[in-house]
Design a protein around this nucleic acid. Structure first.
Lengths: 350, 350
DNA sequence: CTGAAAGCGCTTACAG
DNA sequence: CTGAAAGCGCTTACAG
């Protein structure tokens, strides 16, 4: 790497390094003549200031960290894109890190971000213990949580209120005649896993549907657990006629196993997924989803973070969710065979 | 941000800053006693070295830049993931940038990466003119191109040989009885767009199929152009019975418009896509694809980059591609109505 | 308006 | 084995 330094620019312009710096940083205390000569020299040499040195001196790096649990999850890819574009237009570059749903990898990135002295970080946290997030707080690194929160950490956040969307989904399914809805839940060690499960439980009770605990399978937000969940649910003596998956990846796993089992989605079984992924509309049949705006989430997270950086203490933001009905759950209402809904005694998972 | 500095660690350990630095960097010229005291002090204070200052002094940042054309494209999300994991295990963090298929946004990130003095960069370039890539070369920033190359830029690269996969796809389609294959091409301003189009042209000639130039539509690797391509191709007086899309996003666009037009994929029309995206196997019918290993591509790109950083001049690597047949193109061979294949005179696009 | 100088947090020859 | 000092490339009071 053969870098051009401000010293060379100053020499070519025939001024001191300090003066060159002033011109380059737009300090008005410079003469028009000097401004011109320095600008010409910088252009001539294709000068790119050393961001490290700038940051060291000014304790600002104009960079933000963004930590997602899984880049390959389209929801987080979209979130990364949204946040990055918002950051870019505010003059910040975004350093994206991928925790791969692993706490230790998240911690490693967190330490790296502290080391690189980013101006702030946005984290969609993995797990519930916070890990090195506590170090960020101690160091007073401006931090905003997104999508998920961590109990006991008092940080501004942007999350989704899953209540409305899930209630709409359950009601919609009930209207189609379903009484037994299988729920493929997220892990209870994440705030979204807990919130959505609680919302489902309330909605089912409200709608007067079966509260059989066997209808709930606890997955881990990865595709494989969606498959496992469908397996478990379909093997019940009294299996569900509709399925609700708490995130897109588990829905993907559910779809692939339903195909294999020869169950026709939207005909033999209804399916609704949380997260409005572009691809879901392309499936045949198109997938009904509980949508929430990932665009807004990314944009607002950046806004909050900029406020924290500016020394303010912004309120957390909760975004709405809503059901979008497509063919996967819009099956013609058929009279369901009335089966006894006696609650079989088996392990209940809470 | 309240950072702990090496000065505080040194003070707590009762040694000079230089000695503390030596211990922390594993310099063997230290006494066991000192090592212990410094390590204890660093742990006690939860010391994280300032990466900026380290980089400024040692001219190494232990960070790599990765620039992709579009994070939301699953192929590049997978590539980012693969490269990041490989970099991580080599001790580097990856700064991911998203060009959004825009040359100027790519240039902006490139300048940022120069400013941040990353140790090297991996770029899947947007467009054909190189832009600020030339500045990287002038500055001797270690750089590796991935997926796409840029004419006139002599940089090591990791690309896919699309020839074999495309030939297999065309032959497979010919065996099913198709004589008119519609090709939704990538932009001719990218190396992959040109290579794949050339491979298609050769394969079609080899198989003795229609070389009607109307059967080729030039898209831009975005979903919308896939839809537009299908529209244009299906309106021909003699439309194709099979479709080959040169990337996953254009395939997505094609699928959505085929649904709307009421064309059943794998029955009314065959479809094959370039890029083996996980989701394609879930579609109904599952999509036939030309697969190439994005895992290998990411991993090898990092390997090459580390070699360049080490002062070596590695050879470029070309990865293979191959056809995976699924239901979307495996329709039972039916006798096709013999239509006159007179080449109508209309605009030919080369 | 401009130059000389201090200093950001490190690392690394240089003495001892 | 250790300390004092120089210096990486910048920015910013401080004089003038």
């Amino acid at each position: 790497m053969e870098a051009v330094t401000i010293k060379e620019v100053a020499a070519l312009a025939g001024v001191s390094v300090g003066t060159a710096s002033r011109v380059l940083s737009g300090n008005p205390a410079t003469s028009a003549d000097t401004r011109e000569r320095v600008a010409a020299a910088a252009a001539e040499l294709d000068y790119q200031p050393n961001a490290q040195a700038q940051a060291l001196r000014s304790t600002r790096s104009n960079s933000l960290g963004l930590l997602v649990p899984d880049v390959r999850n389209p929801f987080f890819a979209d979130l990364a894109h949204a946040a990055e574009q918002a950051a870019l237009s505010a003059g910040y570059v975004t350093l994206l890190g991928n925790a791969n749903e692993q706490g230790d990898q998240q911690d490693r990135y967190l330490d790296t971000l502290i080391s690189r002295r980013v101006d702030g970080v946005i984290v969609a946290p993995v797990g519930d213990d916070g890990g090195r997030l506590r170090a960020l707080i101690e160091r007073k690194v401006p931090t905003v949580l997104v999508d998920r929160t961590v109990p006991g950490l008092d940080l501004p956040s942007v999350t989704t209120d899953s209540e409305a969307g899930i209630r709409q989904a359950v009601q919609h399914l009930a209207e189609q005649g379903h009484t037994r809805i299988g729920y493929i839940s997220g892990p209870q060690a994440t705030s979204t896993g807990r919130d959505r499960f609680a919302a489902f439980t309330r909605a089912v009770a409200e709608a007067g549907l079966s509260q059989d605990p066997e209808l709930v399978y606890f997955g881990d937000y990865q595709a494989a657990s969606g498959s496992a969940g469908v397996h478990a649910l379909m093997e019940l003596t009294n299996p569900p006629t509709a399925l609700l998956a708490a995130d897109s990846l588990m829905a993907v796993g559910a779809i692939s196993i339903l195909h294999k089992l020869g169950k026709r989605i939207g005909t033999d079984i209804a399916l609704v997924a949380f997260d409005d992924i572009e691809w879901f509309a392309l499936l045949n049949p198109a997938l009904s989803v509980i949508a929430h705006s990932v665009e807004d989430m990314g944009r607002i997270a950046i806004e909050l973070l900029l406020q924290v950086i500016a020394g303010q203490a912004p309120e957390s933001v909760v975004l709405p969710s809503e059901l979008i009905v497509r063919a996967s759950s819009a099956m013609p209402i058929r009279p369901m065979p009335i089966l006894p809904t006696t609650q079989t005694e088996q392990r209940s998972q809470q």
